[in-house]
């Protein structure tokens, strides 16, 4: 499936654009990665004694894999609501720059802020990655509708995966359960690495991984924030230094 050219009449209707967004979920391996990740989240929710409705509501309203896994794991291991909320909010900080960088791709001079609320909610790592790939191929005035379609498609896939994983969990051995949980770091690592085109991206990814264990030793409760800001700033420094020299 190839998207129609930018000047095609296919793009005149917002509903068509929505449908093209929906169909685009078949054009990326990340859909399979998401399915597998959310299979794991469904299984994890079952094993930590959450209900299926709870798991589905977390996918619909949180819509961020790492935050959901952190929430389920911390609550399941007896953390207080406050401790869980802090862990979730720290993991969610990365959504801020994602939203900031993805919304300008959809905005036109006449776009109102409220028109972007749903697209903002749908923004998570997969959508962020796919927006940078697909949106240059979509006329600017149809991009919000396209993103709504793409996001709704991805959410639906994940709700199905949650349900399947929840019912599979009863039959999974500990080893297979561990294998499903390992899919999350592997898939996030390789999909982010695949999208690292500039040296700064590679530096941010590599240093972010290497600095986390050091930051965790400080035990400040803000480990990910500390390692992220330090590694990201060094990566930006590398980018700036290369620009200056060029």
């Amino acid at each position: 499936m190839a998207l129609p050219p930018l000047d095609s009449p296919q793009w005149q209707s917002p509903w068509r654009a929505f449908a093209w967004g929906l169909r685009s979920i078949t054009q990326t391996i990340l859909t399979i990665v998401l399915f597998v990740t959310y299979l794991g989240i469904g299984a994890l929710a079952h094993d930590t004694h959450f209900s299926l409705l709870w798991a589905l509501a977390s996918t619909l309203f949180v819509w961020a894999g790492p935050a959901q896994i952190i929430l389920i794991t911390t609550l399941g291991s007896g953390a207080t609501i406050i401790q869980s909320a802090i862990a979730v909010t720290v993991s969610a900080i990365r959504l801020f720059p994602m939203v900031v960088s993805v919304l300008p791709l959809m905005r036109t001079p006449t776009t109102k802020r409220r028109e972007l609320i749903f697209a903002t909610h749908l923004t998570a790592v997969t959508l962020w990655v796919e927006c940078h790939r697909f949106l240059p191929l979509v006329p600017r005035e149809r991009r919000i509708a396209f993103v709504h379609g793409l996001g709704c498609g991805l959410v639906s896939v994940c709700l199905c995966a949650n349900t399947v994983g929840y019912f599979l969990a009863a039959n999974l051995t500990q080893t297979l359960g561990a294998a499903i949980l390992l899919l999350t770091p592997l898939s996030f690592l390789f999909s982010t690495a695949r999208n690292s085109r500039e040296v700064a991206d590679v530096v941010a990814l590599t240093l972010g991984i290497l600095l986390y264990p050091l930051a965790a030793k400080m035990n400040s409760g803000l480990d990910i924030l500390v390692s992220g800001v330090v590694a990201g700033t060094i990566a930006y420094g590398v980018h700036w230094w290369r620009e200056v020299r060029a």
């Binding site: 982010t192 700064a200 930051a215 590694a231 990566a235 930006y236």
Partner: peptide, 14 residues
């Protein structure tokens, strides 16, 4: 760059 590094931290944490 910071967003990428924070995600890298989540990967490392898991």
């Amino acid at each position: 760059a910071v967003a990428t590094a924070i995600l890298a931290g989540v990967i490392a944490q898991i």
